[in-house]
Amino acid sequence: MDAVTLLKTRRSVPPAFLTEPGPNAQQLETLLTIASRVPDHGKLAPWRFVIYQGAARDKASQIVLDTFLASCPDADEVARKKESNRFSMAPLVIGVVSTAANHVKIPLWEQELSAGAVCENLVIAAHALGFSSSWLTGWMAYDERVLLRLGIASHEKLAGFVHIGTAKEAMPDRPRPSLAEIITYYGQN
């Protein structure tokens, strides 16, 4: 598939619709290599990866569930089930962590945007390798109790969890914005 078609056909597939096979070790290395090739003012590499695969996905899901139940002990069974499999639906979850920090020359915002670009490259690379993916956050991406136990330090932020696997079925595309509604030509009335 050529690059333009690849970019035009990329779409998110929710983790509940992802299954095996996931990327093998060589494909994972390719994904991370491509994800790292983003604009990075100052060559700071203000991001890093946390890989959740195999049994680690269940351990991460248990951390999310335990933290959820500490705040919502009376949660119903539907909510408990949802929280108990946050990391275990897709064969692979990659946490993209923003390590942005104050710098004398490079604004924090540019470093954070670079971490977002890493997530975007990751989902595009997954599509290029024939996988489906979804870039998500959710409440746990902002809960320090969860993040610390998932390997993310208190001075870091989570840019997203990218769930990667094989789509169980073809997913319909969502409506996309009309270009006429999102484009402004400066200086033209």
Rank of each mutant, 00 (worst) to 15 (best):
144 E>W: 12
131 F>I: 03
76 D>E: 07
11 R>Y: 14
124 I>P: 01
137 T>M: 05
133 S>M: 07
104 V>N: 13
175 P>Q: 11
167 A>R: 08
173 D>E: 15
127 H>F: 05
167 A>W: 01
133 S>I: 02
38 V>W: 03
93 V>P: 01
103 H>M: 03
11 R>K: 15
67 T>P: 10
95 G>T: 02
124 I>W: 02
3 A>G: 09
97 V>M: 00
68 F>C: 07
169 E>S: 15
129 L>D: 04
28 L>Q: 12
133 S>K: 05
60 A>T: 00
18 L>I: 02
106 I>W: 10
4 V>H: 13
166 T>V: 01
27 Q>A: 13
67 T>H: 12
81 K>E: 15
129 L>V: 00
58 D>V: 11
63 I>G: 02
144 E>T: 12
177 P>L: 11
6 L>N: 02
162 V>L: 06
85 N>I: 10
5 T>D: 12
100 A>E: 03
60 A>Y: 02
24 N>C: 04
161 F>D: 05
62 Q>H: 13
92 L>M: 02
74 D>E: 15
23 P>V: 05
51 I>M: 01
182 I>H: 12
147 L>D: 00
18 L>F: 08
166 T>P: 03
144 E>V: 13
38 V>D: 07
134 S>G: 09
69 L>Q: 03
161 F>I: 04
164 I>T: 00
188 Q>R: 14
176 R>V: 06
185 Y>I: 10
74 D>N: 15
103 H>P: 04
19 T>S: 15
171 M>K: 13
14 P>N: 11
124 I>Y: 02
80 R>K: 13
149 R>L: 14
142 Y>H: 10
72 C>A: 15
164 I>V: 07
106 I>Q: 14
137 T>D: 06
15 P>I: 04
128 A>R: 10
171 M>R: 10
146 V>C: 14
108 L>F: 13
62 Q>I: 07
36 S>L: 00
182 I>T: 10
149 R>N: 14
40 D>T: 05
115 A>W: 07
24 N>T: 05
168 K>P: 04
51 I>Q: 08
156 E>R: 02
38 V>R: 10
171 M>I: 10
175 P>S: 10
